[in-house]
Amino acid sequence: MNKSVCIIIPCYNEQENIAGVIAEVVALPGEREILVINDGSTDATSMRARETGKAVVIDMPANLGVGGAVQTGLKYAARNNYQYAVKLDGDGQHNPASIDSLLQPLHENNADIVIGSRFITENEGFKSTFWRRAGISVFEFIVRWLTGRRITDATSGLRAYNRSAIEFMEKYYPSFDYPEPEEIILACKNQLRLQEIPVVMRERRSGMSTISSAMSIYFMLKVTLSMLFISLRSPEKKEG
């Protein structure tokens, strides 16, 4: 096991995009394990990913939601002794070329978790729709209120973790729907160092976003509630 970086790609019904994402990661220099977490897709996602022959594909027995899928990837990374894990969405929105810049602060030991933000640099790449951006601003405000930190892209799923973050999140990852903003509060609460770096995102190539407009109200309420309660809870006890 000489690869030290595990690329976790959670996906649900991404048969059109997944092979392209894998190919992009493979094309990068350096060796990485590519781990596709197929979260109970009803289409050919698992087959498309396997066909590439470049990825380890974990098929979840049931659809657990992004959180449960990502946590499975982190468990895998923890058990197979990876030093770093990078989480990349399976829809092609994240450019794998940013993996190295995400890992940089971890290599330098300046952070435990690095978040790729599309809002640090202005006017470059895909910035999402108006309502989504409004939601992200609300989360930015809540994060700032609860932790005092400024996180410009709380819903960004492009993240890198070092070993201590992997070991913590493997146990305590917010394992329900839409975990990203909660993860920030949880990390701050438990003294994991966060850093945001600028990345350029693209518009998803095909398929539907996981957050429909009807679900967005539920999304906002649920995530806000979870963030409040995570900050109310005492920090998780670290074992050992």
Binding site: I58, M60, G68, T72, R79
Partner: peptide, 20 residues
């Protein structure tokens, strides 16, 4: 919900290590 999630995750991880 928590228990089912943990079970599913273990089943998925077991299955991949078995395949390997």
């Amino acid at each position: 919900n928590d228990k089912i999630r943990q079970l599913s995750q273990e089943v998925a991880l077991l299955s991949i290590s078995w395949q390997k």
